[in-house]
């Protein structure tokens, strides 16, 4: 199981043919308290770089882009009632959506742990 990152602070955790997408801990700290998450609809087809979701803090709204192309298979409904989950643990309870990865090759273009750590130093 690998996790990759975009320079825009999304992570994608690869679980077989599926990717779990959310924002990084660095991003949630920078945004502050998340008050709303606009989730994509299941079945939505995304191209890499498409706007997939929006996370809102009190004074900022940030688009979440698709790290790879694919189809949304599941969304984290719990975020509708409890957007703060993104702050509490963005990689566990705070995941945003799952995507059926269309082209695993696109993952190679993303950052690995070390690369992302460098970026956010």
């Amino acid at each position: 199981m690998t996790t990759k990152f975009t320079p825009d602070h999304e992570y994608i955790r690869v679980e077989g043919a599926t990717g779990v997408v959310g924002i990084t801990n660095y991003a949630q700290e920078a945004l502050g308290d998340i008050v709303f998450v606009e989730l994509p609809s299941v079945g939505k087809v995304l191209k890499k770089g498409d706007e997939a979701a929006v996370v809102e803090s009190v004074k900022a709204a940030s688009e979440i882009y698709a790290p790879v192309s694919g189809t949304v298979t599941e969304i984290n409904e719990a975020l509708s009632g409890e957007p703060g989950l993104v702050n509490q643990d963005p990689t566990a309870g705070g995941w945003i959506y799952k995507i059926a990865i269309a082209d695993a090759g696109e993952l190679d273009g993303l950052l690995d742990d070390a690369g992302y750590a460098d970026l956010t130093k």
């Binding site: 825009d8 999304e10 991003a27 945004l31 004074k59 940030s62």
Partner: peptide, 11 residues
């Protein structure tokens, strides 16, 4: 994701 340099929320 896009970052926005608006003010951080009021603590």
């Amino acid at each position: 994701m896009s970052m926005n340099n608006q003010g951080r929320p009021t603590g």
